[in-house]
Nucleic acid binder design. Structure first.
Lengths: 144, 144
DNA sequence: ATGATAAAAGACTCTTATGTCTTAATATAA
DNA sequence: TTATATTAAGACATAAGAGTCTTTTATCAT
């Protein structure tokens, strides 16, 4: 599994907020209902993103969560880094400490290039662009 | 995490057997000792590869496990497929059912290319070649 | 035959990820 | 100021992955 469930849910929630960019706050309940995700679980995931300053939150009636930055300034990599950390892109696939170009493990050569490309693409893909594609029905956000 | 621990241990054990290709059977205890892996855990992992016909095993004194095919005919992908399955290469990263080129999710475009490249490299890299590189000290097998 | 060696099988434990539930805190609206 | 809506916080539950231990089975050497 490339990404944890928390991370996948986080990405999909930020996508939802990006598509609903004009609303300052969206209740988490609305997101969890629409996406079929556990409300309390999603709440905890979004708290991480709130603490990271990526989204903002407001308690009480008319409260909810909303983007704290422009959607176009948040990359897929930003969300992945907050929720899954950077081990996928930093650590040796075979778990050997000190794995490096001058001291490679058996999978080093293969994964070194692939992970660099993947990281670059994830850094370049932003939620503004993704939201636009969702709105224009080119890609989908739900399980439909 | 790209690969499970079971899978990583399995890859490293098959590497060990590939380097020790001239020995028909190597005791699992020897492998687990050298690699610092739990003996019983490794035993269970290697049973999977034995049942898959990738390695062979023999009980009793002089017994152990050994390659059941030429090292050069076993790919990294073969071992990964047996131990982690193909979900990494088949399923949608965002867990949306029915994700396909004509019905893509938000990460589809990025991961589609990357995973195809990764799969190709893993299929092309065989244990004969890796064992040769280990023997020639170009890559390492241990945590040293 | 008997004892030693080593894999096979399965029960069991520990840890982490995932998911649920309850209570507290805070903001809005009447 | 009271009721309602909503996030925050944390306890609790469940499931899966990781790891340990014991018993059984098979092979070899004496």
């Amino acid at each position: 599994m490339l990404l944890s469930k928390s991370c996948v849910y986080g990405i999909r929630a930020v996508l939802y907020l990006s598509v609903n960019d004009e609303r300052e706050y969206v209740p988490i309940k609305e997101i969890s209902d629409k996406m079929g995700i556990s409300f309390h679980f999603l709440t905890k995931i979004l708290q991480v993103l709130t603490n990271a300053g990526m989204i903002k939150s407001m308690k009480g009636a008319k409260g909810g969560v909303g983007l704290n930055q422009k959607a176009s300034s948040i990359s897929l990599y930003d969300v992945i880094r907050e929720l899954d950390g950077e081990t996928l892109f930093e650590e040796c696939v075979l778990g050997l400490p000190g794995c490096a170009d001058d001291n490679p493990c058996s999978m080093h050569k293969i994964w070194r290039v692939t992970k660099a490309e993947l990281k670059k693409e994830l850094e370049e893909e932003n939620f503004g662009s993704l939201a636009k594609q969702i709105t224009e029905d080119e890609i989908r956000l739900y399980d439909i």
